[in-house]
Design a protein around this nucleic acid. Structure first.
Lengths: 170, 170
DNA sequence: CTTGGAGTGTCAACAAGGCTGACGTACCCT
DNA sequence: AGGGTACGTCAGCCTTGTTGACACTCCAAG
């Protein structure tokens, strides 16, 4: 039920001495940190007609120009209807360009326009500033540990996406 | 270690060699890891009539029995209307009990019922299992670094909430 | 006692962003 | 020619966030 009452529970974790309380603190750290992590871009987007979903799309298109819709779908883990709604507005507003594939004409390859790149820059600058400050404050070894834990926390398929297996244009 | 292409960019961060690419990877690690982090409870809640908001409420009430509505509001960072909608269903369903404060009768102190505690247990067990596995895989030093970075990433007020300043009963 | 303000509950309306289901179109491949 | 793939889209539903407005209870100050 709770921390340290049962010697057996502690013993079962004797390698790392992970009490429930420590794990609880880990959960809450994730919650609060993620809030901080998204706070800056959210504030910027709040002033415009866009939301976090647009940010994600712009981010991953910017990071893998020429990626296909299907590819993005897998990375973001949403339905095509959800993604399409976001993509439609971004394309209509001229932030994203969609090109029919050369090899396979069913596919659409996505690129940021100049305007899209500008917004991506603005958003990621805000987010990177916080991340940079946090990394500096915590120190290099802490950053390495941070990365190791986060990686271990992902679903395996996501770990693959994360490890630079991003799809590229045909 | 550093894949610095632009000497100027590297030099500007010479203390830690933080390239934009490293920060980008940090962002994506947060994104994918948070997805993994919430995946298990979300799956459980999806079968019931509850969502992530209910999980959060139950979690923080369970961790600080007797907390007031206002307290919870500050921790969760949502409007009272949003929280109230969630709380109302939890109270109606008998998972949460709301008691009028002794000293200040305007306040409501929130507690989990037996049933509520059971659900909290079920949800946090799933989440803790993933966290535990990740912590084990990454090792103790990595966990310490993980905590340090997350803490540095929070907003200052949230850091206060996180550091066990949770409100308690009247 | 009156009054102001804090803490809370609640109604109404709305928006973002998830979801499912269904359908159409264009295309690739066998 | 037909089946499966990639994509777009319409329609509808849900959760969860938002504002704004209003009422009630109660504490504390005047």
């Amino acid at each position: 039920m709770s921390d340290g009452r049962s010697p057996a529970a502690v013993r079962s974790d004797n390698l790392l001495f992970l009490t429930d309380e420590q794990l609880r603190q880990g959960s809450e750290a994730m919650f609060f940190a993620y809030r901080g992590f998204t706070a800056d871009p959210d504030r910027i987007l709040g002033d415009m007609a866009y939301g976090r979903a647009h940010h994600r799309a712009i981010h991953f298109i910017g990071g893998a120009p020429g990626t296909t819709v299907n590819n993005l779908l897998n990375i973001l883990g949403v339905t095509k209807q959800s993604l399409n709604r976001v993509l439609r507005t971004l394309i209509a507003d001229g932030l994203v360009q969609s090109k029919v594939g050369r090899n396979d004409k069913r596919e659409r390859h996505l690129y940021l326009t100049e305007e899209g790149r500008a917004l991506e820059q603005k958003l990621s600058d805000a987010q990177r500033a916080r991340l940079r400050a946090a990394f500096r404050e915590a120190g290099p070894e802490a950053v390495a540990g941070f990365r190791r834990v986060l990686e271990a926390m992902m679903d395996p398929e996501m770990r693959a996406s994360y490890t630079r297996l991003r799809g590229s244009g045909s």
